[in-house]
């Protein structure tokens, strides 16, 4: 029941973030939705994720406010209001009606399929020595995923450096 309330709260925050004119308040509303997600993770019994989400959320807000704080932001008008809104709504309705049929196929809320995870849950402690099964999975059973994640982070850093580079190609004379 609480999770319903938090989801509705997140939807309200997301709507406000999408519709407000002021960019800074839009970013604050985005971070409100992220903190709601953090609470939802806590209720859904995922403490590791809640901690990570909290840290990442704060970094998001810092980066995004840094990107917008000293720019002059003229009001961006949206052209062809009616046509664009109606087509976006139509697309959302089609998406949700297909999702209604697709959601019947996945396991019911509260009864997960635990075919693979049963192995991890029952033998995780003896095999890895870690009491926290989630960190046992990320760092031991599936540690190549963590390795690839680190590779993605380094690639992102290289990408940011390449994008924000000031000097162009130097002419050879």
């Amino acid at each position: 029941m609480e999770i319903h309330l938090i989801l509705i709260f997140m939807i309200c925050a997301a709507l406000f973030a999408a519709e407000t004119k002021d960019l800074i308040s839009s970013l604050i509303a985005l971070s409100v939705a992220g903190l709601g997600l953090c609470l939802a993770f806590l209720i859904l019994k995922a403490p590791n994720l809640a901690i990570t989400q909290l840290v990442v959320e704060i970094i998001y807000v810092i980066i995004l406010i840094r990107a917008t704080i000293d720019k002059d932001l003229p009001l961006v008008r949206d052209g062809r209001w009616l046509f664009n809104t109606v087509s976006a709504m139509l697309f959302a309705i089609v998406f949700l009606s297909f999702a209604y049929f697709a959601l019947k196929e996945i396991p019911v809320f509260g009864q997960p399929l635990m075919r693979v995870s049963n192995e991890y849950v029952t033998s995780g402690l003896e095999k890895t020595g870690s009491a926290n099964i989630v960190s046992a999975i990320t760092l031991n059973f599936r540690s190549f995923d963590a390795l690839a994640e680190a590779a993605v982070l380094f690639t992102a850093i290289i990408g940011v450096l390449a994008i924000t580079r000031k000097t162009g190609k130097i002419d050879e004379k």
């Binding site: 859904l44 019994k45 995922a46 590791n48 994720l49 990570t52 989400q53 990442v56 997960p112 635990m114 693979v116 995870s117 991890y120 849950v121 995780g124 099964i133 989630v134 999975i137 990320t138 599936r142 995923d145 963590a146 994640e149």
Partner: peptide, 13 residues
Amino acid sequence: VDPLPQAMVLTTI
């Protein structure tokens, strides 16, 4: 609860 999606979502975040 199922720990496998939690481990994967940790990567996704």
